[in-house]
Simulated assay, not measured.
Amino acid sequence: MLIVTGYVQVEPTELAQFCNEFSALATATRRRSGNLSYSAAVDDPQDGRLLVVEQWEDQASLSAHLEAADTVAFVDRWRGRMLGNIEKYDASNKRGLMD
Protein backbone atom coordinates (compact mmCIF):
# COMPACT_ATOMS: atom_id res chain seq x y z
CA MET A 1 0.00 0.00 0.00
CA LEU A 2 1.12 3.56 -0.70
CA ILE A 3 0.26 6.54 1.47
CA VAL A 4 0.44 9.96 -0.14
CA THR A 5 0.24 12.91 2.25
CA GLY A 6 1.29 16.49 2.71
CA TYR A 7 0.11 20.05 2.31
CA VAL A 8 -1.25 22.10 -0.57
CA GLN A 9 -1.52 25.85 -0.34
CA VAL A 10 -3.57 28.26 -2.44
CA GLU A 11 -4.45 31.92 -2.05
CA PRO A 12 -7.05 32.20 0.72
CA THR A 13 -9.34 34.06 -1.69
CA GLU A 14 -9.28 31.00 -3.99
CA LEU A 15 -9.71 28.38 -1.27
CA ALA A 16 -13.45 27.86 -1.80
CA GLN A 17 -13.02 27.41 -5.56
CA PHE A 18 -10.10 25.03 -5.03
CA CYS A 19 -12.11 22.96 -2.53
CA ASN A 20 -15.07 22.73 -4.91
CA GLU A 21 -12.88 21.57 -7.79
CA PHE A 22 -10.96 19.17 -5.54
CA SER A 23 -14.25 17.72 -4.30
CA ALA A 24 -15.32 16.93 -7.87
CA LEU A 25 -11.96 15.30 -8.58
CA ALA A 26 -12.12 13.35 -5.31
CA THR A 27 -15.53 11.90 -6.19
CA ALA A 28 -14.15 10.51 -9.45
CA THR A 29 -10.86 9.42 -7.88
CA ARG A 30 -12.52 7.38 -5.15
CA ARG A 31 -14.10 5.22 -7.86
CA ARG A 32 -10.76 4.41 -9.47
CA SER A 33 -9.32 0.95 -9.32
CA GLY A 34 -6.72 0.72 -6.59
CA ASN A 35 -7.86 3.78 -4.64
CA LEU A 36 -8.35 3.06 -0.96
CA SER A 37 -8.96 6.66 0.18
CA TYR A 38 -8.60 10.18 -1.17
CA SER A 39 -9.24 13.22 1.03
CA ALA A 40 -8.26 16.78 1.78
CA ALA A 41 -9.15 18.96 4.74
CA VAL A 42 -8.64 22.65 5.25
CA ASP A 43 -5.88 22.97 7.84
CA ASP A 44 -5.56 26.77 7.94
CA PRO A 45 -8.21 28.77 6.06
CA GLN A 46 -6.47 32.10 6.68
CA ASP A 47 -3.35 30.74 4.99
CA GLY A 48 -5.18 28.69 2.32
CA ARG A 49 -3.52 25.46 3.45
CA LEU A 50 -5.02 21.99 3.09
CA LEU A 51 -3.87 18.61 4.37
CA VAL A 52 -4.04 15.91 1.68
CA VAL A 53 -4.17 12.18 2.50
CA GLU A 54 -4.45 9.39 -0.07
CA GLN A 55 -4.07 5.61 0.07
CA TRP A 56 -3.42 3.46 -3.00
CA GLU A 57 -3.07 -0.28 -3.45
CA ASP A 58 0.08 0.07 -5.56
CA GLN A 59 2.17 2.34 -7.78
CA ALA A 60 0.32 1.30 -10.94
CA SER A 61 -2.97 2.56 -9.45
CA LEU A 62 -1.41 5.84 -8.31
CA SER A 63 0.28 6.34 -11.68
CA ALA A 64 -3.00 5.74 -13.51
CA HIS A 65 -4.65 8.40 -11.33
CA LEU A 66 -1.85 10.90 -11.94
CA GLU A 67 -2.11 10.33 -15.70
CA ALA A 68 -5.94 10.45 -15.83
CA ALA A 69 -7.38 13.28 -17.92
CA ASP A 70 -9.32 14.85 -15.05
CA THR A 71 -6.28 14.81 -12.74
CA VAL A 72 -4.08 16.36 -15.42
CA ALA A 73 -6.74 19.01 -16.14
CA PHE A 74 -7.07 19.85 -12.43
CA VAL A 75 -3.31 20.25 -12.02
CA ASP A 76 -3.11 22.33 -15.21
CA ARG A 77 -5.89 24.66 -13.98
CA TRP A 78 -4.11 25.22 -10.67
CA ARG A 79 -0.52 25.24 -11.95
CA GLY A 80 1.16 28.38 -10.70
CA ARG A 81 -1.68 29.01 -8.22
CA MET A 82 -0.99 26.18 -5.79
CA LEU A 83 2.09 25.11 -3.91
CA GLY A 84 2.49 21.58 -2.68
CA ASN A 85 4.66 19.58 -0.35
CA ILE A 86 3.39 16.05 -0.94
CA GLU A 87 5.31 12.88 -0.05
CA LYS A 88 4.71 9.21 -0.86
CA TYR A 89 5.33 6.42 1.64
CA ASP A 90 5.36 2.64 1.32
CA ALA A 91 3.25 0.98 4.02
CA SER A 92 3.84 -2.72 4.49
CA ASN A 93 2.85 -3.32 8.08
CA LYS A 94 -0.69 -1.95 8.50
CA ARG A 95 -2.27 -2.54 11.91
CA GLY A 96 -4.72 -0.93 14.31
CA LEU A 97 -3.74 2.20 16.22
CA MET A 98 -3.56 0.39 19.57
CA ASP A 99 -1.87 -2.77 18.22
Results as ranks from 00 to 15, higher is better:
Met1His: 10
Met1Tyr: 08
Met1Val: 13
Val4Arg: 06
Gly6Ala: 07
Tyr7Ile: 09
Gln9Asp: 02
Gln9Cys: 03
Glu11Ala: 12
Glu11Val: 00
Glu11Thr: 00
Thr13Val: 10
Thr13Trp: 01
Thr13Ile: 08
Leu15Ser: 04
Leu15Lys: 04
Gln17Pro: 00
Gln17Val: 14
Glu21Met: 09
Glu21Gly: 03
Phe22Gly: 01
Ser23Met: 04
Ser23Glu: 15
Ala24Trp: 04
Ala28Met: 12
Ala28Cys: 08
Arg30Ala: 09
Arg32Asp: 15
Gly34Asp: 08
Gly34Tyr: 07
Asn35His: 10
Leu36Glu: 08
Leu36Asp: 00
Leu36Ala: 06
Tyr38Cys: 06
Ala40Cys: 11
Ala40Thr: 05
Val42Glu: 02
Asp43Val: 00
Pro45Phe: 04
Pro45Arg: 12
Gln46Met: 07
Gln46Asn: 08
Asp47Ala: 15
Gly48Arg: 02
Arg49Ser: 05
Arg49Glu: 05
Leu51His: 03
Val53Pro: 00
Glu54Thr: 07
Gln55Tyr: 08
Trp56Ala: 06
Leu62Asp: 01
Leu62His: 12
Ala64Asn: 13
Glu67Val: 03
Ala69Cys: 01
Ala69Pro: 04
Ala73Gln: 15
Ala73Pro: 10
Ala73Thr: 14
Ala73Ser: 15
Val75Asp: 06
Arg77Asp: 14
Trp78Gly: 09
Arg79Pro: 01
Gly80Phe: 05
Gly80Glu: 05
Arg81Trp: 08
Met82Ser: 08
Met82Tyr: 07
Leu83Asn: 10
Asn85His: 12
Asn85Cys: 11
Asn85Lys: 11
Asn85Arg: 13
Lys88Val: 11
Tyr89Arg: 01
Asp90Ile: 01
Ala91Glu: 13
Ser92Met: 06
Ser92His: 12
Asn93Leu: 11
Lys94Ala: 13
Lys94Pro: 12
Arg95Asp: 03
Arg95Phe: 00
Met98Val: 12
Met98Cys: 07
Asp99Met: 06
Asp99Cys: 04
Asp99Thr: 10
